[in-house]
């Protein structure tokens, strides 16, 4: 008996999905990334409880944040991006330029001096070394995925570190609004509710039409 055409079509669609090959070299890239991840975990650190890990992670984040302050003293303070946040960064990559490369004298200060911060370490690299080509959308997405995963895993400090990398290394632009929202959430979950509120308030003011504004507003203290 001739099979039903819909069943036959369905079977062919599944056959196409089954026969799709993984991207060339993808498995090897995953293996190398996983090995790197393994090697970063010493047996001792792997056995540390979350409670015992926290001070280590916090110290790492503090050092990273200190480095950010040194490298971008006018843009960043206390892990809060000094750039005006906007959801309008949806232009194609070729049209985006890094505003970090031309810091504006009119850029508003966002320092919240009452909050604790790590001491500034000596600069690790010359300031000019951080001005590289704009990151691709894929790079930006990857960085935000890392931050999002860290948040999902209950590690806001790691999320902040990933967001610092997004700001400092990638000079992320296209996902700026999402990055800001992730930072707000990470700050809040990490106990820095006041900083989260300040950043959320600024986001709401600067992006009144953003679809993310309701979520940001939920972090603003009355």
């Amino acid at each position: 008996m001739k099979p039903d055409p819909i069943d036959r079509l369905g079977a062919r669609l599944f056959e196409v999905a089954r026969s799709e090959a993984v991207p060339e070299g993808a498995q090897q890239r995953a293996l190398e990334a996983a090995r790197r991840e393994s090697s970063r975990q010493t047996p001792t650190s792997a056995r540390l409880s979350a409670r015992r890990k926290w001070p280590v992670a916090a110290a790492c984040v503090a050092i990273a944040a200190g480095a950010v302050l040194v490298l971008r003293p006018r843009e960043v303070s206390l892990g809060i991006s000094a750039e005006p946040v906007s959801v309008a960064h949806t232009e194609p990559e070729r049209r985006t330029t890094s505003r970090m490369e031309t810091p504006s004298a009119e850029a508003p200060s966002t320092a919240v001096p009452s909050l604790p911060m790590a001491p500034k370490p000596a600069p690790l690299v010359a300031p000019t070394a951080v001005h590289s080509a704009p990151a691709s959308l894929s790079d930006e997405l990857s960085a935000l995925k890392v931050a999002s995963s860290a948040l999902s895993a209950g590690d806001p400090q790691a999320a902040l570190a990933a967001l610092d990398r997004y700001d400092r290394v990638l000079k992320g632009q296209k996902m700026r609004a999402e990055a800001t929202l992730l930072r707000i959430e990470a700050l809040a979950r990490g106990g820095q509710t006041e900083a989260a509120s300040v950043l959320a308030q600024r986001f709401v003011e600067q992006n009144p039409g953003s679809p993310l504004v309701d979520r940001a507003r939920s972090f603003v203290h009355e």
Partner: peptide
């Protein structure tokens, strides 16, 4: 590909 890599990093 990115997500699969993340899964194995979690596994690691």
């Amino acid at each position: 590909e990115d997500a699969t890599q993340q899964v194995f990093m979690i596994a690691a």
